[in-house]
Write a protein that binds this DNA or RNA. Structure first.
Lengths: 108, 108
DNA sequence: CATATATTTCCATTATTCTGGAAATGTCGA
DNA sequence: TCGACATTTCCAGAATAATGGAAATATATG
């Protein structure tokens, strides 16, 4: 992952509303949620919701799946993992950088 | 960690220059680097450098240690870990969310 | 087809952030 | 004390982002 792609993702998450949307989707799992439900839970004007969802989508953090009149959005976990990997890349020269340090686990 | 604190950190990292600064510090380890060296490597005007460093500092991602005329900055690894923890919190309902999923390792 | 609902696009306003020159502050060594 | 250097603060202009009303688009249902 390149620096600019990473900073675009981080900037996308660096906003209360978008981070709240993203967390909801991360916690919702693979099925995701449709835009209406997200907007209702966060009490967002449709245009505002759409703006933020488009932003998250543009940087690749979430995916969309149309279903009739609805559009379901879900977190792209691989994008999140790439991003976390980028942040911890070459972290602290091989020493454990802190108690409870984050490490990449082996694929299951 | 609260949502707003997390989004402040993410926003701080969501800028090419600041992310570049932060990565340099993450890779520099506990000793850190002084502002001049950072600025020289990234070819930043002093005021610009100071602005970005202040931003990272304000949200708690980096710490400073004055040493004579120099100020050494270093990444605060515990802040990074809290942030990563926040992002993966309640992730994907207990299933492994992706190949190479990030997990929190036991303290050393 | 007509109507209701979901979502997006268009647009303008407001708010925030970024940038860097210049001046200020603080520290060192002679 | 003086001059050189490191860093920050002050400031203002330029650029970018956020918000939401209203209209457009798309799809489902009667």
């Amino acid at each position: 992952m390149e620096l600019t792609a990473a900073s675009d993702c981080l900037a996308a998450l660096g906003h209360d509303t978008r981070l709240a949307i993203y967390r909801m989707l991360v916690q919702a799992g693979a099925d995701g949620m449709n835009a209406g439900v997200i907007g209702a839970r966060l009490a967002l004007a449709p245009a505002t919701l759409s703006f933020h969802i488009a932003h998250l989508s543009r940087v690749g953090l979430i995916a969309s799946r149309p279903d009739g009149r609805f559009i379901y959005y879900s977190a792209d976990y691989s994008a999140m993992n790439e991003l976390l990997g980028f942040l911890t890349d070459n972290c602290c020269q091989g020493e454990s950088c802190a108690p409870g340090a984050v490490k990449v686990a082996a694929p299951k």
